[in-house]
Design a protein around this nucleic acid. Sequence first.
DNA 1: AGCACGCCGACT
DNA 2: GTCGGCGTGCTC
Length: 809
Amino acid sequence: MPELAQVVVDVPTMQTNQPYTYQIPPKLEKQIQVGVRVIVPFGKGKRTVQGFVVAFDKASQYEGELKPIQAVMDLQPVINSELMNLSKWLADTTYSFWISCLYTMLPNLLKAKTTRIIRIVDEVDEHIAFDIFHGRDELEMAEVQDKPAILSELFKLQKEGKITIEYQVEDRAKAKTVTGIRALLNFEQLEDERASLHANAHAQNRLLSYLQSIGSQVVKQKDAEHKTGLKAATFNQGQQKGWLEKTPVEVYRQPLAMQGPPDDAHLAAPLQLNADQQNAVNQINQAIDNHDPKVFLLQGVTGSGKTEVYLQSIANALHQGKTALMLVPEISLTPQIVNRVRRRFGSKVAVLHSSLSNGERYDEWRRIERGEAQVVVGARSAIFAPLTNLGLIILDEEHESSYKQDESPRYQAREVAKWRGKYNQAPVVLGSATPSLESRARAVKNVYHLLRLPHRVNKQELPPIEVVDMRDEIKKYGESNFSQKLLTELNDRLQKNEQSILMLNRRGFSSFMMCRDCGNVLKCPNCDISLTLHMDTRTMKCHYCGHEEPIPRECPNCHSHQIRYYGTGTEKVEQELHQLLPQARIIRMDVDTTRRKGMHAKLLRQFGQHQADILLGTQMIAKGLDFPNVTLVGVLNADTGLGLPDFRASERTFDLLSQVSGRAGRANKQGKVIIQTYNPDHYAIQDAKTHDYEKFFDQEMMLRRQASYPPYYYTVRLMASHPEEAKAARAMADIYGRLKQGLLSSTVILGPTPRAIARMKRRYYYQIVIKYKKDPYLHQLLFDILQDTQSRGFKDVQVSIDPDPQYFM
DNA sequence: AGCACGCCGACT
DNA sequence: GTCGGCGTGCTC
């Protein structure tokens, strides 16, 4: 019998990034298991924190006295043994805290929230009682946190012993409940009650019969009212007379995307597969059946029926009594895919939306954990879904950079998928029309198994793409976001009552403000970037820190009134389009119009029902949409991404153009794509034009090899920041010295350089990028650097490490 | 993170 | 002489 528990506490620092040993009090012995959350005393005073039991122990080599665990939060482990193992691996490979990894795997609701409560325990004078405590005897620390004068008074009182500060860990996991009823009397007793009723008490009589019919079951009161036709008042009478009691019943919240309960009686049948699809399904199924943790790269052009391959493989996994996990990028963006999975597998499906409320997310998570759902569809973090007996993992659009989390723990869902595949002896399917260079290169080396779907299911040709040189356009017709060619085509679609999609590449390039007289650009006071104009709120906003200020009437620098907007935002394009095509109905989709929950789906539904002729949006419209009436796709500025100082710029541009091209002419109508660009000869644009992934791959691989970038080299990015620029620079120079000394000479160290946005949130950032093929010293050295920069000589310096970064700016 | 300990400067 | 600044180190 274990007497001691190893607990990882919720104190995310490098120094506490280890299990601590605690005693298990006899009365908690039965409840404590590996993977449950516990409350433990930690440090001096009455401080308690939440933690996870990660192991049991018989003895401890710790010299001091061991403290006992104070409370257990869960009846069942919230982290199963697979996820426990995974969390360790994750912390190690992403250079992050174990505790952060554990929390990352759980729905938000299970995260600890500690509040500090100040309580009066002795007489205090009136000023304190009324001005600070408002006549109550307790106060939340958060209320006075930023008031130093009050704080110092409080500390004095604490020393005098007149107030205490208590720590409270509150559990936010609250199952949603509705009122239920249960009979308190048995059949005979209820019959006796009936005898004493007035002859005309029909309602009560009916209630008694109903209670007799339900036996000892708990029934939702709403259902009971519905069934009996009785009013709530009658149930209250029954409660008063001691016939029944009210008790909460747990219900699952109905997430927005699943409105209407799934109809298991009318599930959609599998579609007929073509030869390529069948071959892919066969190979995947064979791996499922043989418990072969192979990685497949399913490369299929848009419209080639990848989804059907996923669905039939999932069906096979279920048939084998296993579960399946399917990731899609930013799920809220593709309700069409989610619905398709739900129509096929009904109530077996759990959906982990990024836009679910915490409560909804928790409910879905519970359904998975309890084994009530066997198929999970979700965005990045769904890779941690607590499915047991996994038989198949699918990543759709595997090249998407959103599979990498850009805050700690900086994990790549693709890598986590491979880890879980191996652990469960289950295959992983990476699907894409334009695989990442890394994945495709692995397929070339037979590390991954390549499956191809070269033909579109409807046998239709990919739409022709026309590239318009905007340099010529501007010379001939002056500055505009719309070429003559594109306008002609848009007009043509309006005439034919067909729809168009217009994509503007990147929100970041929307309007900034510049003074024509002095050239002053309005910048964020916290960050080193220009503010962006937002017409909806009539403010200037910073996209990095959220700073917001009113639109200036005059230049803050020279007080000139000659200020104007530059650049192109979706709003501005929408205005221009209204002028050029007054009769067109336009739906604009960007971060601003879709911020509200459910707006995204709503706008798409409107467009699908042809309530608009043109869908104008940012990248978010490039993915997964399938509207049969869309016959024209226009990309307004194809090359905004190309100029970025990032080795993946070409790859992203190629992916984006290929993807948005696939939106045109998906049904029986011929589609057309127009790409406007200032770099018509760039290979990324030329290869997208000819739908030639292979050519692009070869060209890009050559460049990557020449410049020693992935997939030929691995990369790690190291960032350091400080409120003072010189200190950030000095810390980075220090780190550089250690790297230079500790790493192999074949390892390339780039930098340190100020980051492209050198100042963010009032801190200065510097970065180093390390390129390596194999360096046995790197991993440990990076951990040492993290450790050391936590303490001596690096005051206020924040260091973070980003393995395999997606962006370099 | 939060807290105590401890070592320096500036005040009742 | 003491109060309080924050640099340093520890939390089972």
